[in-house]
Structures are given as C-alpha cells and as structure tokens.
Simulated assay, not measured.
Amino acid sequence: MSVETMVHAVERWIGTGEPNEIQRWYEQRNGSAYRGNWPWCDATMTRAAIEAGEYDAVCFGTDFAYTVAHAQRFKEAGAWHAMTTGIAKSGIRRGDIVFFDWDGSSSIGAIDHVGIVTGVSADKRYVFTVEGNTANVCARRVRTVQEIAGFGRPAYKPEPKKPTTTSPGTGSKRPQVSLAKLVAAFEKDAPKKGTPVSYAPTEYVEDALVAEGLLAKRYADGHAGTATRSGYALLQQRYGYHGDDANGIPGMASLKRLGKAHGFDVVA
C-alpha cells in the first residue's frame, strides 16, 4: 500500500469503456442517482483508492464522483496545490491527484475532470496521467499547464522496505540477484499462488518491471510465471534485442542494466 500501489490500481482500468463496472459498483454503494451512463472519472479514483488500500489518503474515507467536492476536500486538509506557478515550480509528481479546468483557470469551483499523475517530462512542460472517462475510456494522457487547475497530494503510506544483502567484495547494501538462480526460476516456475517461491529475489526483478510499466503490480509476487516472463521480453525488446534474445529469459547484460536502474546488483 503506497503511491505505487495507487498508480497501478488506476492503471489496471486502462482500456475500460462505458458503461462499465466502475459505474455499476458506484451505484451499488451510493444509490440510484448513479444509475446508467454518467461521468465516472472521479469514481475511478475512488475505486482505485479502495483497491490500493489508500482510501483514507486519496478520498478521506468518502466516495467521490464530483470533482469539485474532491478538490475542496484536499484544500480543507491543507493538501491542495493550485497550478498558478507552472509545472516545474508546482512540484507536481507521481501519485498526485490532478484536477483539470478546460477553460484554463485554477479555481476549484470550475474543475471539470480528474486523474492521477504517473510522471512529469524532463523539461517540465508536460504531466503524464491516467484518467477515467477521458473520451469515454480510461486512458493515458499528456497534459499541459493550461489544462491543470491544481492537484491534491495524498498522504500515502510509505513504500515497504525490502531486506538487503551485502554483495561479496563490494560492501554494498543493495539487493543481490543471481542470474543462474533467476534463469532457473524463469524456466521452471509457473504461477503458484499460496505456495513458496523458488527464488525470492525474483521479486526485485518483478518490482523493477512494474516500475518500467511492463508488469502489473498484482503479478509481482516472486513467482516467475508467464506474466513476468512476458514483461521481461518486453524489456528486452525495449533494450533493442530481437528474436531468441527477446524470449523473456533474463541475460546478464539486460539484467545488469535493469539492476543499475532499479537498485540491485547481479552476480553469476
């Protein structure tokens, strides 16, 4: 339960059209006023917050379908940031709940839409988001400062810390992954929910694939099953490998590159 859990909970709805499960679910919780096809952007944030275990942080324990009320609640909590100084100076970041006014104001009362921030461009000109009910679907979007009224910053739970081991001869406290043991896990593991994993450090690799946007968070469970292997194949393709070199089985070069980017060391 953390900012990453929340982001991935929203991302799992990407591609959802309408009418949809989110609308039906919200009606069951909040009554017949929400029957049929209605604007569901903030209901998406509510549903994802509950799934992520961040309902209090994102929604203050309240279901939201009305974006103005949601933004106002962030303001009451002292967690509202109006977009009045530009993207760079605003400090907007991954996990923030971002609100939009299509007329370009930073007024809470004029807010039209909401999403979650997944990142900011290096030049600070664009904000990357996932939004429900954008052109009648849940999708990734790229937004400019002119569209953003402001954002709320949830008080997310901290990321859980993983145990670390010392790499031989380095004094490093970074996690360590054995390529040989990892490959063996990839070649023989299938999803085994509820059973022991064959090589626990597989989870470090899965977490890195999640951070790269190549694996859904729910599959980062230490089991090197088909989803993990598919995610690694996509990583290999991203790194420029093709054919048998992009078969989803880790190699030393790709694994070291991934470890360098995501904080773990690789040994044979």
Rank of each mutant, 00 (worst) to 15 (best):
F186K: 01
A71I: 05
A216T: 05
Y66S: 01
F151T: 00
E4P: 03
D244W: 07
A220N: 07
R47Q: 11
S2G: 09
D245T: 05
H8R: 09
W13D: 14
W13I: 03
V210A: 02
V266E: 08
E159R: 13
G91Y: 07
G231D: 06
A253K: 15
G61F: 09
I97W: 12
V145H: 09
Q23I: 06
T44Q: 10
R238P: 02
E206S: 00
R141H: 12
Y156D: 02
A33H: 09
Y126A: 05
V177A: 04
Y232M: 03
G213T: 10
D189A: 03
G95A: 01
W40G: 02
A33M: 06
H113P: 03
Q28T: 06
E212T: 10
Y26S: 04
E27Q: 13
P196C: 04
E206F: 00
S172P: 02
G194H: 12
G104D: 04
P158N: 02
S90V: 12
R29A: 05
H223G: 00
D101Q: 09
N37K: 15
A122C: 07
D63Q: 08
K75Q: 14
T170D: 09
K256C: 14
S254I: 06
V10N: 13
V145T: 05
E187L: 13
A135E: 12
Y156H: 09
V197G: 01
V266F: 14
A110G: 04
F186I: 03
Y126S: 08
A220E: 11
W80L: 01
G109T: 10
H223L: 02
G169Y: 07
Y55M: 14
V177M: 11
E54H: 12
K173I: 08
A224Y: 01
P168C: 02
A184D: 11
G213E: 14
